Computed example of a mutant assay.
Amino acid sequence: MRLPLLPLLALSTALALAGCGSEKTVTASNESVSNVAKKVADAGLKFNPGRWESTMKFVKLEMEGMPPEAQAMMAKMMGKGRTFASCLTREEAEKPDAKFFGQADERCKYDSFAMGGGKIDAKMTCKSEHGAQTMTMVGAYTPDTYQMTMSINGKGPEGKAMSMQMEMSAKHNGECTGKEEGKAGAPG
């Protein structure tokens, strides 16, 4: 079973913003991913470049008509974290653009986006081959860490109703080593 993870990529990127002073704030309503990326860059909100280690954990997954084998597989995944590392270059950190936010730019828009004072609260709608999905993200960040809860509701494979909740956390861990799983894109 392939889960629609496109919105996760876009959102984890936006939420990984770090190094921001508490006086800087970005807000947006009904805007494209690229417009939000531009607002973040223009506001001077920056990422810490280098190696980021992230953990993603599924807390809940419900899907209409999920076969028993798939339910059993998902039950084993619940609560277990998957850890991975990525490398964010200084150039990517200084000037994130729409490409930084992945292909989600074409299919997703922020219904609302607020980031400042160490908090982030966003709602995004993405369109996929299965239909629309709505994602909400709530979290906190410091220059070297972030934690967030993401909830996704919409259509999964075969157009069936799906509801998913995940927790993500990440920390900046020094310089890139060249052994990271990802280069461009979100820390984590």
Rank of each mutant, 00 (worst) to 15 (best):
A140K: 09
E180S: 03
M1T: 15
G65D: 15
T125V: 11
M137S: 07
L8W: 14
M137D: 06
G185E: 04
L9S: 10
F100T: 00
A140Y: 04
R51E: 09
S112M: 15
A93T: 00
E23W: 13
A186I: 02
P68E: 11
G174F: 11
K46H: 10
T27R: 12
N35P: 09
G102A: 15
C20G: 09
V59S: 01
L9E: 11
G154W: 00
M168I: 00
S86Y: 05
T177V: 07
Y146E: 07
N48E: 14
D121A: 15
S32F: 10
C176Q: 12
K171T: 06
E31R: 15
E180Y: 03
S29P: 13
E180F: 02
G156W: 02
A161E: 10
T13G: 07
S22R: 15
M164A: 02
T134C: 04
A184N: 04
L8C: 12
A184R: 04
E94R: 07
I152P: 00
K179R: 14
A14H: 13
S12I: 10
S12A: 10
S169D: 13
M1C: 14
E175P: 05
G79Y: 06
N35A: 14
Y146A: 08
L15C: 11
E92V: 01
A85C: 05
V138H: 03
S169H: 13
E92L: 03
T125L: 07
G154R: 00
K80A: 09
A184Y: 04
G154Y: 00
S128C: 04
P67L: 07
K183C: 14
E64Q: 03
A72S: 09
L5G: 14
P49D: 14
G159T: 01
A122V: 05
K95E: 04
S22A: 15
T177R: 10
I152Q: 00
G131N: 00
D105H: 14
K123W: 07
